[in-house]
Amino acid sequence: MKYAYVGCRTTKERNARGNGLVVYEISPEGHWTEKQCLYTEANPSYQCLDLEKKYLYSVHGDLTLASSYEIQEDGTLKHLNTIDIGGKNPVDITVDAENKHVIIATLQGGTLYTVKRNADGSLGDVVSTFTYEGKEPGKVSTVHQCLWDQKKNYIFACAQGRVNGFGQMRALKYDHSTGVLTETDRFMARTWDEPRHAAMHPNNCWLYMCEEKGDKVLYFQFDEETGKMKALQELSTVPETITSYSDASEVMIDPSGEFVLVSNRYTDSIAVYHIDAHTGYLKNTGFYPCLGKTPRFFCFAPNGKCYVANEDSDTIIEFNFNPVTGQLIPTLNIIPTGSPVCITFK
C-alpha cells in the first residue's frame, strides 16, 4: 500500500467542503501526505481501479458523468476523458473480469450502464443498459450499487424504492463478451427499508446486504449455479436503545472473512457481527463510534487496518481491527480531508 485515492464532494448542494479527487502518498510508517488534488468535474465520489492498476475510474455524484485517469509513476493522476452516460447521479463503478468493460450504477437514473474500456484506458461508448422499473411508466427504482460475486459472473445491484420505485436487490448474470446483464433472481424488501449496499463472502455463497432506512443487515445464501438468492436472517445495525434517526450506509466483510461490519450515519457508529463459520449466520459483537460525523464509506486497506470516511466532519479515521474479537480500536491517525466519500488503495 503506497497510495490512497479519495473522492470528495465539492458542491454547495451537498454542503461540501472538498476540492476534488485527492491523492495521498502513504509512508511505510503509515503517514499520509497529500500529493495532488485534481478537479475535473464536481463531486468525484465512488471509484475503482482497472485490473492492472494502471487506471482509475471515478463517477461524479449528482451529475451524469464518469471520468478516467492514468496513474503516473509517482502515483498522481492524469485525466484522460470524461463521458456523459445519461443517467443521473452515478453512485458506484466497477471493472469486469476481462478488463473490457466498466459497469456504472446510477441512482436517479435507475440504470446500470456497461461502458467499453478503450485500449488507452479511457472510457468509451455505452454498450448496454439495464433499468429497474418503477411503479409507473417513466419512473424507476433507484439503483445504488453494482457488486460482483467473487468470480465476476454476477452483479448484485441494490435499489431503493423511495417514492416512485421498489426497494429490492437483484442478481444479474453478466455476459463477458457483450456486457449485457440478465436477471436471475430478485429480493423485494419491506416498504421503506431501502436496500443500499451488499458484500459477498470469499466463499461466494454468503451474501450480506444493508438497508439504509430500515437500519438492518440481511444474510442471504447465493447459488452461483442457478443465480438464486435465499434470505435467511435480519438484524438491526443499531443498538435496541437507539431511538433517534439513523441511516445504514456501507457494509464490508473483514479480510479474514469472519466478520461483517456496517456503518451508520447520524448515529455515527459501526456495527460488527461475527459470521458463524458453518452456517453463515450473524451475531452482533459490538457497536463502535466512528469518531466523526456521517460515515458514508469505510474499507479495509492492504495493511489490515480499517479506514472510515466521515463526510461531515472532514476526516478519515484509522482503526486497528482485531480479527479475533472484531473490536475496532482507533490509532489516533486522523487524515483531514474535505467531505470524503470513497477511498481506493494502490
Rank of each mutant, 00 (worst) to 15 (best):
residue 144 H to G: 00
residue 146 C to F: 05
residue 144 H to R: 12
residue 146 C to R: 06
residue 111 T to C: 09
residue 119 A to D: 15
residue 118 N to P: 13
residue 135 K to N: 12
residue 123 L to E: 04
residue 131 T to I: 05
residue 105 A to Y: 07
residue 133 E to Y: 11
residue 87 G to D: 02
residue 152 K to R: 15
residue 101 H to K: 14
residue 121 G to P: 03
residue 151 K to L: 14
residue 140 V to N: 00
residue 132 Y to D: 10
residue 154 Y to D: 07
residue 103 I to M: 10
residue 117 R to D: 10
residue 90 P to F: 05
residue 137 P to S: 11
residue 119 A to C: 12
residue 144 H to F: 08
residue 124 G to W: 10
residue 113 Y to W: 15
residue 107 L to Y: 12
residue 112 L to D: 02
residue 143 V to F: 00
residue 131 T to G: 04
residue 115 V to G: 00
residue 150 Q to T: 11
residue 95 V to P: 02
residue 129 T to R: 09
residue 103 I to T: 06
residue 134 G to Y: 03
residue 154 Y to H: 04
residue 118 N to H: 08
residue 100 K to D: 11
residue 144 H to A: 12
residue 96 D to L: 10
residue 116 K to Y: 13
residue 151 K to A: 12
residue 152 K to T: 08
residue 147 L to A: 08
residue 144 H to N: 14
residue 116 K to C: 08
residue 88 K to E: 11
residue 110 G to F: 10
residue 123 L to F: 13
residue 105 A to E: 00
residue 124 G to T: 05
residue 90 P to V: 00
residue 92 D to V: 04
residue 89 N to E: 13
residue 123 L to P: 00
residue 134 G to T: 03
residue 154 Y to E: 09
residue 137 P to M: 08
residue 148 W to D: 02
residue 123 L to V: 15
residue 151 K to Y: 05
residue 136 E to D: 10
residue 153 N to V: 00
residue 140 V to A: 13
residue 108 Q to V: 14
residue 111 T to V: 15
residue 121 G to Q: 02
